[in-house]
Each structure stands twice: as structure tokens, then as C-alpha cells.
Design a protein around this nucleic acid. Sequence first.
DNA 1: TTGCGTGCAAAGGTTTTGCATGGCA
DNA 2: TGCCATGCAAAACCTTTGCACGCAA
Lengths: 139, 139
Amino acid sequence: MRTGIYKTRHREDLMEYFETTGANHFTVNDVCEYFKSRGSAIGTATVYRQLEKMVDEGIVNKYIIDANSPACFEYIGEHTHHDVCFHCKCEKCGKLIHLHCEELKAIGSHLKQEHDFVLDPKRTVFYGICSECAARGAV
Amino acid sequence: MRTGIYKTRHREDLMEYFETTGANHFTVNDVCEYFKSRGSAIGTATVYRQLEKMVDEGIVNKYIIDANSPACFEYIGEHTHHDVCFHCKCEKCGKLIHLHCEELKAIGSHLKQEHDFVLDPKRTVFYGICSECAARGAV
DNA sequence: TTGCGTGCAAAGGTTTTGCATGGCA
DNA sequence: TGCCATGCAAAACCTTTGCACGCAA
């Protein structure tokens, strides 16, 4: 029989982890460390494979920041009204800022209507300088 | 004395390569292959290091497609005119679209005022699906 | 039983780094 | 003479894959 997805213990554990961390972002490594520290380690490959499935299911978002940073995941659950968030990456300190902003969402509409381009916020990262680095006088 | 950047033969070679390839995009590997086939190979590390410098100077853009694909670079030269140019990259066909749009410029102001983040348009790329690929039904 | 899930290790690929040498200013 | 640039190889890094075994349905 082909159900496609089994309800395994690890999948349950992951779901529970997601629920407890809420909308926070995490990397595959974060997940692995978390379970390892609790004595119930999960293999890296398993985490990747489960997350990939969940991305396909649409209950997890995957953000690609840059080539040398690990991918950033976000659990969104079954929320039909979930806002995809935007990311700003500081070119100086490397800090990643997550934004849920209505005004930025307007960019998507604008790009589609005026430029016929369907924006993918999951892959789009705004580069620039964060407030702290700017204050520090970084150039 | 500290000028910061030396005018080496390799740097000149790279510049010439960029001029001849125009606005086309290229990977580090493309560059290496090109010079290798002409008998004047350049080390991979050197290409990475020079390109990194040029990105800092703002004369080259670096695009991240996804974690397992090589980074894509684009020579943009000395954009002396103060007209900020935005880029949209199609995830399907790889086409790069250049936009001069007032409304998009507003993003910079918004990010700065509301989120205290100084956007760098030269390094920011909007990822998504272009009109042609959308029409073709690509998913 | 069938087929998916898992763990481990190894492989895959891109990018960075250490170190000695060579070149620009 | 001072830096900076380069080459080579090794290292670092994230991610995927092969394979044998375990578990869900």
C-alpha cells in the first residue's frame, strides 16, 4: 500500500520540536544538536530527508541564504494564512534578520503587476548593512 | 603604502574577459575553463579571491542559485550614474532581468526607516519566475 | 509482506585557507 | 622594501547518496 508518508517516531519528534520552537528559524544542525543534547539523536541525513518531505508538503519553508551558510528552515504548520517572511542579511557581520512586513509583501504584488515577475520570497535575500554595523561606522 | 588593490595581470585578464562576455553571467568554473583553454590558467582560489574583491567594489554581482549549484557572477562595471538598478533572476530559465523602477527604490527607504537596515541594491537579487516561464506553466 | 524510514559512513560539490613564492608600488 | 597576489593542495563546509537494517501499515 502506498500512503507516501509514514508516521514514525522521528517525524513525531520533529513535529513536536517545531511546535515548541514556534515560528523560529532553525538549521539542520540546530535540530540535530537539540535532539543530541536530549539523548535521542537523529541522523543528519534523516533530518534532511524529513525536512525535504515537509517542504514538499508545504508545512515547512526552506530559505537559501548564501552558498556557505546552511539552509534555514521554518515550520509553518497547516496555517493557511501564514505569511512568508523576508530576510535581510548583513554584509558585514553576517547576521540574518527575519521580517514579517506587509509593506515588503507589496513588492511581490508590484513585481507581478508591473513587471510580470512572480517573486519567490523563499529565495530572495536583501543584502545590506544592519543597524549595529552602521552605527559602528562600518563601510 | 596601502592602495588596497594591485593592478595585476590576472586582474586585467579577468576584466578583459568580463568586457568581452558583456552582461552574461558566469561561474568561477567558467572563468577557469576559459583561461585554461587559452593556455593561461588561473588558479581557482585566485578567481574566487579576485571576484570577492570585485563584489566588494561593487563592479561584480554575485548570485546564489541554490546550495548545491556554483555561485553565478555578473560583471556590471562602473555604474557611475546614480540610477539604482534592481535585478530579478528567473529560477527556471536563469534569465536575469534588469529593472529601473522608482517603486522598488522605495524599498530601500522603507527598510531603512522601518527596519533600520541599509539596503545594498547592487547585491540584492529578487528570485522568482519570469513571465515566459510562468506562461509556459513551469512550476 | 511490502515499502518507507533510518543510521552510518562515504561521496559529492563548492568555497575557503595555509603557506611559500612571486609581483606590484 | 612593504604589501598584496598567486598557486597548489588540503581543509572545511553543507548536502546527498548507498546500503543494510528497522519499523509502519
